[in-house]
């Protein structure tokens, strides 16, 4: 049951992403190209999502807990630190180069398109590279 609802929620998310155009790099990149072939559609994606998620989260998080688990798993960090800002800036720069973001590419994987498979493989490589970098940085910190 737990896995079935997760599957259906993933399906709803993926279908929404595809209908919205978030899995189409031409559309995503045009949103960021105000000086060129600008297409403001993506603002409506985030607007629509927040229109539902803001009241939805307010309602849900006001309850004692989720249906299938003990409690809500929310991030407990509040600090705006260097990794958050530099990491997000890096993500944005890469997003503008490739045209896919992770949430757009995962549903698009189901089309079997080679470009999507390449992006996801590179994305995973980037994640692993970052994990290795952090491990090395922590080891060095401990050594000094």
């Amino acid at each position: 049951m737990r896995l079935l609802t997760a599957f259906l929620i993933g399906l709803l998310f993926g279908t929404g992403i595809l209908i919205a155009g978030m899995a189409n790099p031409a559309k995503v990149l045009n949103f960021f190209d105000i000086a060129g072939t600008w297409d403001p559609s993506l603002a409506f994606v985030m607007g629509g999502a927040l229109l539902v998620a803001v009241p939805g989260y307010r309602l849900v998080l006001g309850r004692p807990g989720p249906l299938f688990e003990q409690g809500f798993q929310l991030p407990d960090t509040r600090r705006i630190d260097r990794p958050l800002v530099l990491g997000s800036l890096t993500f944005g720069l890469g997003w503008g180069v490739a045209g896919f973001c992770p949430g757009g590419a995962l549903p698009a994987l189901g089309t079997g398109r080679g470009e999507v498979v390449m992006f996801v493989a590179a994305f995973i490589a980037g994640l692993l590279l970052a994990r290795l970098t952090r491990t090395l940085m922590q080891t060095r910190l401990r050594a000094t």
């Binding site: 929404g16 985030m46 539902v52 849900v60």
Partner: peptide, 21 residues
């Protein structure tokens, strides 16, 4: 269609929190 797709994404996010936290 972009707003509709966005609303589906927002609903999916809300449901994941409501059911699975």
């Amino acid at each position: 269609t972009s707003a509709l797709g966005g609303m589906m994404v927002g609903l999916a996010a809300t449901l994941l929190m409501a059911l699975h936290g």
